[in-house]
Computed example of a mutant assay.
Amino acid sequence: MLPPVIAGVDGSVESLAAADWAAREAARRDRSLRLVQVWNWHPRQEDGEPVTAAQRHQAQRVLRQAKARVRAVVPNVRPYDEQVEGPATAALLKAAEGAEVLVLGSRGLSGVTGLLVGSVAQGVVARATRPVVLVRADEEPADEHLLARDGRPSILTGFREVVLGVDLGDPCDAVIEFAFEAARLRGAGLRVVHAWRQPSPLGLGPGDIGLVSGPQRAEEWLGFLSAVLQVWRDKYPGVEVTETVAEGRAQSALLRAASGASLLVVGRHLTDRPAGPRIGPITHAAIHHVGCPVAVVPHE
């Protein structure tokens, strides 16, 4: 059996938006949809606290609500549900092990503040071994699509671009492939972004050219990016790729590129560190400040 798309639901507005997005993704991927409700996911309940009959009844109501909404939004997807006991982060991580994609919600705040991800979602992103997509509370199906000719939102127009952030110092096949496949499934263009910084004279090594101009260095990076992507262009000939290199901080470049995207794809290293799992500064900025859904793809 093919791995399902899984959505974590807790009755909140953001989790219902995540369930909607997961249903659309399951239809795109021709996968089943599994809705997971964790007993003690409630923010005021401590991990390990016993579950009451009232909480079990509430959990069942949450699942019924999510299933009804999914069926209304994507009628051809038949979700199945599962109730599991917490702790919430551990339960969702276990569910993610058998998922094609795990989808969770994030509360949308102001554009200045960004997204309040929450400890559970952030903990899952930091430790999951499968891709995790975070969806904001006000995400609507039309947000994935281009505006209609009259400027109104529509689900009948083409999809907005998928944006992929690439570190040319450590390009990862799993992350790149996820983005190309997401673009193919949507019939969307793929914008690949790499950010670079001008080296300081103190950081130059033997043989380095310290006087190369910014435009020349940008052309070099663009050539490297094209070379890295060539094998994926060949594998996905139907995906229109736009390559972008920007001087400056990667976080800023991705935030700009993702402002009109249907999906942002970033990577996260799986390597263990003494201080425990971390998501890295670029991924951290993406999941907190980007308005569109963000896919975090773990890699070695």
Score class of each variant (00 low, 15 high):
residue 4 P to I: 04
residue 6 I to K: 04
residue 11 G to S: 04
residue 13 V to E: 13
residue 14 E to K: 04
residue 17 A to G: 08
residue 22 A to E: 01
residue 25 E to D: 14
residue 25 E to M: 14
residue 26 A to E: 08
residue 27 A to D: 14
residue 30 D to K: 13
residue 31 R to W: 08
residue 38 V to R: 04
residue 39 W to A: 06
residue 42 H to A: 13
residue 45 Q to K: 14
residue 46 E to T: 07
residue 46 E to S: 11
residue 47 D to F: 12
residue 49 E to P: 00
residue 50 P to L: 03
residue 50 P to M: 02
residue 51 V to M: 09
residue 51 V to P: 00
residue 52 T to P: 01
residue 52 T to A: 04
residue 52 T to Q: 01
residue 54 A to C: 00
residue 58 Q to G: 06
residue 58 Q to Y: 12
residue 59 A to W: 10
residue 61 R to I: 09
residue 62 V to P: 02
residue 63 L to P: 00
residue 65 Q to Y: 09
residue 67 K to D: 07
residue 69 R to D: 12
residue 70 V to W: 15
residue 71 R to Y: 05
residue 72 A to R: 06
residue 74 V to E: 11
residue 80 Y to I: 02
residue 80 Y to S: 05
residue 81 D to L: 02
residue 85 E to M: 14
residue 85 E to Q: 15
residue 86 G to Q: 02
residue 86 G to N: 04
residue 87 P to Q: 06
residue 89 T to D: 03
residue 91 A to Y: 06
residue 91 A to G: 00
residue 95 A to T: 03
residue 99 A to V: 04
residue 101 V to M: 15
residue 101 V to G: 07
residue 101 V to P: 11
residue 105 G to M: 07
residue 106 S to Y: 04
residue 107 R to D: 10
residue 108 G to Y: 04
residue 112 V to T: 13
residue 121 A to H: 12
residue 122 Q to Y: 13
residue 123 G to R: 09
residue 123 G to W: 10
residue 125 V to L: 15
residue 125 V to N: 06
residue 129 T to Q: 11
residue 134 L to F: 14
residue 134 L to M: 08
residue 138 D to N: 14
residue 139 E to P: 00
residue 139 E to R: 08
residue 140 E to S: 12
residue 142 A to H: 12
residue 145 H to P: 02
residue 147 L to S: 04
residue 150 D to S: 10
residue 150 D to A: 11
residue 152 R to F: 06
residue 153 P to D: 09
residue 159 F to I: 02
residue 161 E to H: 09
residue 162 V to H: 07
residue 172 C to E: 15
residue 172 C to S: 15
residue 182 A to I: 00
residue 184 R to P: 01
residue 184 R to C: 01
residue 185 L to A: 13
residue 191 R to E: 15
residue 191 R to L: 15
residue 193 V to F: 10
residue 196 W to I: 12
residue 199 P to C: 08
residue 203 G to M: 10
residue 208 D to V: 06
residue 208 D to H: 10
residue 209 I to V: 08
residue 224 F to Q: 13
residue 226 S to P: 00
residue 230 Q to K: 11
residue 232 W to M: 05
residue 234 D to G: 02
residue 240 E to K: 10
residue 242 T to R: 15
residue 244 T to E: 15
residue 248 G to R: 09
residue 248 G to F: 13
residue 252 S to M: 10
residue 256 R to T: 04
residue 258 A to H: 03
residue 261 A to E: 10
residue 265 V to E: 07
residue 265 V to T: 04
residue 266 V to I: 15
residue 268 R to H: 05
residue 269 H to E: 11
residue 269 H to A: 13
residue 269 H to C: 11
residue 269 H to G: 11
residue 270 L to P: 02
residue 271 T to S: 15
residue 273 R to C: 01
residue 276 G to K: 00
residue 279 I to L: 15
residue 286 A to R: 03
residue 287 I to Q: 01
residue 289 H to R: 14
residue 290 V to S: 03
residue 293 P to N: 01
residue 293 P to L: 06
residue 296 V to C: 07
residue 297 V to H: 10
residue 298 P to I: 03
residue 299 H to V: 06
